[in-house]
Design a binder for these strands. Sequence first.
DNA 1: GGGAATATTCCC
DNA 2: GGGAATATTCCC
Lengths: 580, 580
Amino acid sequence: MAVVVTPLRTQAAVKPPKNTKKENTQKQLLFSLVVFVVEFFKMKHNSNVPAFLVKLWTLVEDADTNEFICWSQEGNSFLVLDEQHFAKEILPKFFKHNNMASFIRQLNMYGFRKVMHIDTGIVKQERDGPVEFQHPYFKHGQDNLLENIKRKVSNTRPEDNKIRQEDLTKVLESVHNVNSKQENIDIRLGTLKRENEALWREIADLRKIHVHQQQLIKKLIHFIFTLVQNNRILNLKRKRPVLMNSNGKKSKYIHQIYDDKVCVEQSSVNSLNGVKGSEISDDVIICDLTESDVEVAAEITEGSPRAYEQADVEIVEVELDSCAVLPAETEVSTTSTDDMKQTEAGASAAADDSQRSSTLDNSGPNRSALQLNKPSGLSLEDPVKMMDSILNENGAISQNINLLGKMELMDYLDSIDCSLEDFQAMLYGKQFGMDFDALEESVSSKENSSQLNRGKREEVNPDKQLIQYTSCPLLAFLDGSIPHPELDLGSSSSSSGSGSDSDSSYNAHLQPSSSPDAHVAAEPPSELLDTSLESKQPSRSSLIRLEPLTEAEASAETLLYLCELSPAGAEADATLLDRV
Amino acid sequence: MAVVVTPLRTQAAVKPPKNTKKENTQKQLLFSLVVFVVEFFKMKHNSNVPAFLVKLWTLVEDADTNEFICWSQEGNSFLVLDEQHFAKEILPKFFKHNNMASFIRQLNMYGFRKVMHIDTGIVKQERDGPVEFQHPYFKHGQDNLLENIKRKVSNTRPEDNKIRQEDLTKVLESVHNVNSKQENIDIRLGTLKRENEALWREIADLRKIHVHQQQLIKKLIHFIFTLVQNNRILNLKRKRPVLMNSNGKKSKYIHQIYDDKVCVEQSSVNSLNGVKGSEISDDVIICDLTESDVEVAAEITEGSPRAYEQADVEIVEVELDSCAVLPAETEVSTTSTDDMKQTEAGASAAADDSQRSSTLDNSGPNRSALQLNKPSGLSLEDPVKMMDSILNENGAISQNINLLGKMELMDYLDSIDCSLEDFQAMLYGKQFGMDFDALEESVSSKENSSQLNRGKREEVNPDKQLIQYTSCPLLAFLDGSIPHPELDLGSSSSSSGSGSDSDSSYNAHLQPSSSPDAHVAAEPPSELLDTSLESKQPSRSSLIRLEPLTEAEASAETLLYLCELSPAGAEADATLLDRV
DNA sequence: GGGAATATTCCC
DNA sequence: GGGAATATTCCC
């Protein structure tokens, strides 16, 4: 199959045809003219106006083709009059095709719009009728505007890219958001972790304190129990010989105790003599005593035993702070109870028939004393008063004591006195060899973490501040129980009382709930610690080392042992208790 | 300017030219043939082989053009022999141009490669020499392969898109990663938050316990102090009349105390008689006593005061667990000390000249007793032994007691006995009205959070389990101090002792450090709580309500007050202490 | 009118 | 050889 195609065409664009044989003279001339026009135009406007626009401009301007294509009347659009002939005869002279569609496609490509005539537009859409195209920058006589006409760059791709770009931007934006969120969360996580560690540390501290305190309480109560036992043995000794000496009172008390209740009856109020001033709060009457008053009182108390008129007994109680005698500020509290308790089955059975021969009364009508008046039932009262009342109940029981040998009694009293003083001295003598630097360090680290908490973000409740507790319950106790260290230090001569914080300061930290609310775990910590942020707990190490360690250190270490009783020790203790 | 271009060209592609005037017959024929070939080819292969490939195939196959373009010898490539003539004479018949460059551009566009001849390639690159092109699917006689030849789609855009797509995929991937990370972190954050809340709750609990315990300790020691004071007053009363009765021993002790130390000297070891069995641990000798032994001992103790041969004194101490007399299991410990302490300046000054008339000894060579041998200095010893020693020191002081009026002494002893028994009854009588359901609830919530901890991620240390402490220190104390509830319940007749956990179980939870290590805060919690995870703390509420509340509840509430002393109450207490 | 593939040209 | 702009064709 031999196919020979002879296209007789010209280069419509810039370059002259190379060695085209058999081109006739006319065509070569026309071609040269087109080339010249395009090149001239480009030179004239010094711009890269696309070949299509130059050719179109030339075509419309050319008067020779006005019967097929020409300017409109106003000169802002052009008309194609004979579409068929224009495509087949005119187009090939300028373009590489003879298709009106391709020509229109190019027009559209450069932003030309077909001018729609309202009258003819919809009705006839006449075939072979003239078609009109316009472009804002394609105007008669203004070829300088041509350079503003831009061919549409493939509409899809850039738009697509733009959309993609926008998507990408959004995605990147969200990534950045997520990243910053994550950083925030990381920071919070770190803060929480640090807080958690601090919490665990504090819990460890508190647990140790708890154990210490438990052991201490155990020992204290054990101590008291032992006193009771000693007392009981003495009671046994003194009660057996006097079984027949009965007035019915003793057995009554024993029955009361058998019912295993404590029933404190109304106390009697004694008159006050020689009292310089008094504070009255509820049932408590507190009297200021001068030194002479105390001496008078002591002399009165020193007097020989006198007859006790009342069925209920009263006893003088002198409270002394930290083993020091402060004559000018001595409080003497007096109360009376008629209650007695007996918990020991065997002893009570043995003592069932024993009687109380008489009641003792150490307080006279002219005694200088503080008096505590207890309400009946003694429930739900001020604990201080309660404790005082318990203490004062001691006086209510001193009945059958005269049946015991005087030597034995004095022996026992002295033994109690001695051991109590030992104990007291140990408590106030010296503090423990705790590592207070470590405590301070932990305090400062907690402060750092709290600063982090405040500086960074919400949700970290600044109220959730950690409070450094002293890891030694006895220390804390002393802090709470010695209101005025200077007074204490100045007055205590026998015990090396360590300086300590004021009671109020400590309480401000602890924020103890003032009501006996049982819902301990239900309360959010922030409520518990509302005001604890403001007050800073002063370092205790300086207080601890105020006085050099002396021989009393041995006692201190002993007490430390009391507080840090090992499980083995506790079990040994339990075994002891078990076998008693 | 009139430009007339007359392109004489043919439609190289499919469609026949429409109404092209002045096309000669030959050209129309050729055009028809090309169209036929292309359409025939498409029909034959039923595929859309691009026009360029069909035209090229036709051109190479056509024998008439073999002098310009033809197959190679092997038939897997084609040769363009006369490039100049081929471009100007042959190309226009098939394409809309007469440029060899455009032809080669199309070849490259479809993946054709120029065949480089090694001998001629670099050396001459001869002009007008034949050029050879090949394509794997452009082979002589195999037109069916043509459909495998694909025009390169604009390399830039799809690649660009592909790259963009890859980037987008990566970005989305990272976003997903970040999101999942964030979810994980959120979970951990939630876990940490819950843990934190639990920790805060526990800290609140522990702080309350701490406060409770502190108040309890305060009250206990206050109680003991008051006993001391009472004792001291009695001592004052009994000592003043006997100032001249001196043997020098008393002043020695007073001086020791003035140096504010506790110095316990070596105790004497007494012989053991009538002992059924003995446990020896360190310095402690624990003896099992039969009931008859105790009775014997009691009878011996009940005997009339005898002469005390030793300078140091010994006293019998009987420890009883929870107020119950267990005659078969009574432990009697005996120690001797020569130490006495006096912390009260005024009292000591007044008593400076007082003397110890004699020493008391309750232990005979044939006494059935437990004996505690204390080392000198009594430092760093077992706290149990320490406490025992303190208690036993009570015996060391019972000297001048016989100088006091017998009535007074008995009165005081009974008062102490009564108050102690009251206290004891209160401790064992009834527990507080705490909200134990709330406690249990918090326990279960903590278990939930711990399960979360284990199920989710690393870093959440499973050892960091929270332990529910009883919020009542006295409860905890009772738990720890009553090893065998059934024994206790069975034996204690007077006090309503509440059932409790065994001592060992409780200790397993607390994990108290067995060494007096002062670095409390430095230890990680996991070490503290190593074994505490496994054991579950049984609910205490059932134990608490074992017995209905009786009249003793009043005492219990009183003790509750003791434990929950309000700051105001503490200050009132402090004021009292201050003024004493 | 315009999307899309191919074609042609221009340029590196 | 190939990127890129423009041109042409095809198609919706």
